[in-house]
């Protein structure tokens, strides 16, 4: 064989320096040659995917960390608000358990958050920027403001020192609490995960309800009967909002609600919340034991709900159908609108 190799430089004809290189005979057009015999067409499947592989990459978040984070963050935020309300209405013991509960919960949620990082030692890197486009950034700042306030509120309460400072911290934590309890909804909805993203209208209410129910549960569990009235009412209110938001979300999402509907944890969470709220309001008024059981059920219910939402989201991300079909419907709708207009 001779060495008559084509010496044309093998580069594309667009380059950084703008000089156009040579483009050889590269106008190959596949399918242009030959003539086909007639054959039967194979009917197309109603939905295509690449070997059934998910379109999205699976979230790397671990269920115990992020599910736990959602639950504990909600409990901490709502408990702080309940603590402030209890303090202002003269229910010192309900305030005390709520403050201590909030501190423990926020500690736990910090642990979950940091534990889930690939490089935990770089946690502080989140404090080098503030981005409204990133709920995680916003949340980190909210927690950074909330953590010390909740800590101070609990420490002054337990030690009895600096009551003035303690009251200020209690009110501050109580005011930031609602943000702590609800921002996590934006955190998970601001992703491409279909069941989370599409549910963004109801998710904050679902989370708020679940958080209120869990804080009520903690109050029922740990505060004396004489002071637990707000906790009992909060539990009922929270459970009701949680169930209503979940029902609305499932209705609105249509076919995309499947992973939510068949999620056992979600159903269990709802059942526990409702049972706990009702038991707390009835038997829990008179019997300390019933109140404790109702409180435990409410806490467990809230945890189940959060893990259920987490699981359902993962499931929707792992099946290409939940990514492709809603997008197809959207395209079809847009196409139809264009044709009509």
């Amino acid at each position: 064989m001779s060495q008559a190799v084509d010496q044309t430089p093998s580069q594309t004809d667009v380059r950084m320096d703008g000089a156009a290189g040579l483009r050889g005979e590269r106008e190959a057009t596949p399918g242009s040659a030959g003539r086909r015999r007639e054959r039967l067409m194979v009917p197309k499947a109603d939905f295509d995917s690449y070997y059934g592989r998910p379109v999205l990459n699976e979230p790397t978040w671990e269920a115990p960390d992020i599910g736990g984070y959602l639950f504990l963050g909600g409990l901490a935020g709502a408990s702080s608000t309940l603590a402030a309300a209890a303090e202002l209405t003269g229910r010192p013991r309900l305030a005390r358990v709520s403050k201590v509960g909030a501190l423990c919960a926020i500690g736990g949620s910090f642990y979950c958050l940091i534990h889930d990082l690939g490089r935990p030692e770089r946690f502080l890197n989140m404090l080098r920027v503030f981005k409204v486009t990133s709920p995680m950034s916003v949340g980190t700042w909210v927690l950074t403001a909330f953590g010390p306030a909740a800590g101070c509120a609990a420490a002054t309460e337990v030690s009895g020192l600096y009551p003035g400072l303690g009251r200020a911290a209690t009110l501050a934590a109580g005011a930031i609490g609602p943000a702590v309890a609800t921002y996590t909804a934006a955190l998970i909805c601001d992703t491409a995960v279909p069941a989370w993203h599409e549910g963004y209208r109801e998710m904050p209410f679902l989370f708020a309800g679940s958080a209120v129910a869990s804080a009520g549960g903690l109050g029922l569990l740990a505060a004396p009967l004489s002071e637990a009235a707000p906790a009992r009412r909060a539990a009922v209110l929270g459970a009701a909002v949680e169930c209503a938001a979940a029902a609305r979300m499932e209705r609105r999402l249509g076919a995309l609600a499947e992973p939510l509907k068949r999620n056992r944890l979600l159903r269990l969470g709802e059942a526990l919340s409702v049972a706990g709220a009702v038991a707390g309001l009835t038997l829990g008024r008179r019997s300390r034991i019933a109140a404790v059981a109702a409180g435990a059920a409410l806490l467990a219910g809230s945890a189940c709900t959060r893990f259920g939402i987490f699981k359902a989201g993962m499931e929707s991300a792992n099946d290409p159908k939940y990514t492709v079909q809603p997008q197809r419907r959207r395209l079809a709708k847009r196409g139809a609108e264009r044709d009509l207009g």
């Binding site: 709502a78 608000t81 309300a85 609602p178 909804a185 904050p204 209410f205 209120v212 707000p230």
Partner: peptide, 17 residues
């Protein structure tokens, strides 16, 4: 939506207390 839910949470607790 988060803002409305947060305010509702605050109002809810205030009402119950």
């Amino acid at each position: 939506h988060v803002g409305v839910a947060a305010v509702a949470l605050l109002a809810g607790f205030a009402a119950t207390a």
